[in-house]
């Protein structure tokens, strides 16, 4: 289709995530300034001037300190200082920090019909385990139905019928050594349970004592 409207590409500030023109109203305009100077100088002409003046002052100050003659070196040094500023900002992102996908297995128990339940194992695929194989193995071991189910948000998980949370940890760590027992968590309505950590700690470190 020829008349299809093309999506407009909006320049978003990498610091505060707002469109660049709204940075001045953002949570932290000062932090955005170096980014703005680099990426959207035309939006804030005053800013560029201000920054240049400041940098020039800085550079000239430095040059005086070292007793160098202020000349052609001006441009080069100013470039350096701006790049170092950029790095500093990257380490301290103002708005939000993206969550890294942590490698962990979450075991969840969902109660069905009051006395029956399903054990859901999430995140095994993060350890390079084939889920279809894993579900077969789990079903065989616990003699129940186990299936790979697509979670609500595209994430695949294994549903095992019955409450097998009591020894699933051991089974997982035995069959797939890649999965460290410390990275297995229990979740009851998404609250990570501590006893599992405690338990694994006990098991792992008892021989040491």
């Amino acid at each position: 289709m020829a008349e299809k409207p093309q999506p407009v590409r909006v320049l978003y500030c990498s610091i505060c995530s707002l469109p660049a023109e709204y940075c001045e109203f953002g949570p932290d305009f000062e932090k955005c300034k170096p980014w703005l100077i680099k990426n959207a100088p035309e939006l804030y002409p005053d800013l560029l001037k201000e920054a240049n003046e400041k940098e020039a002052e800085k550079v000239s100050g430095q040059l005086q300190l070292f007793g160098l003659s202020s000349g052609g070196a001006d441009g080069a040094t100013s470039g350096q200082t701006s790049s170092s500023k950029q790095e500093e900002v990257k380490r301290l992102p103002g708005g939000k920090i993206k969550k890294k996908e942590r490698q962990e297995v979450v075991i969840e128990k969902v109660v069905r019909n009051k006395r029956k339940c399903i054990t859901i194992v999430k995140g095994l695929d993060l350890f390079g385990v084939k889920l279809s194989d894993a579900s077969k193995k789990l079903g065989k071991k616990f003699a129940t139905g186990a299936s790979v189910v697509k979670g609500p948000t595209e994430k695949e998980q294994i549903d095992v019928q019955g409450d097998i949370s009591y020894d699933i940890v051991e089974f997982i760590t035995d069959t797939w050594p890649a999965v460290i027992s410390l990275s297995i968590f229990f979740s009851f309505s998404c609250v990570l349970h501590k006893w599992c950590i405690w338990k694994t700690l006990k098991e792992d470190f008892l021989p040491l004592f």
Partner: peptide, 22 residues
């Protein structure tokens, strides 16, 4: 909306209002 700005009717506020709206 930023990608397809013309799909909605637009109202414009003055500059003084921006910071309150935000």
């Amino acid at each position: 909306l930023h990608q397809y700005p013309n799909i909605m009717k637009k109202l414009q506020v003055d500059r003084g209002a921006i910071k309150f709206v935000l």
